[in-house]
């Protein structure tokens, strides 16, 4: 750890705030992506099953 002197609180809090905000946007983007993909796969599977059932009479 470098010696940040009397400004250590300022430097560390700037890094802390930035990392939290970056983590927040990465996490929310990935979570929404996974959720949407799961929902889409689900509805497409249902649609394919319905089509198959209709084809088989």
């Amino acid at each position: 750890m470098p010696d940040l002197g009397s400004y250590s609180v300022y430097v560390l809090s700037a890094y802390g705030v930035s990392f939290v905000l970056l983590a927040l946007i990465i996490f929310t983007s990935l979570r929404r992506s996974a959720k949407t993909l799961a929902e889409l796969s689900d509805i497409e599977a249902r649609r394919d099953a319905a089509r198959e059932a209709a084809k088989n009479g």
Partner: peptide, 9 residues
């Protein structure tokens, strides 16, 4: 001083 390190963000 060390506050220059904030420039990278």
């Amino acid at each position: 001083g060390s506050t220059v390190k904030i420039i990278y963000l």
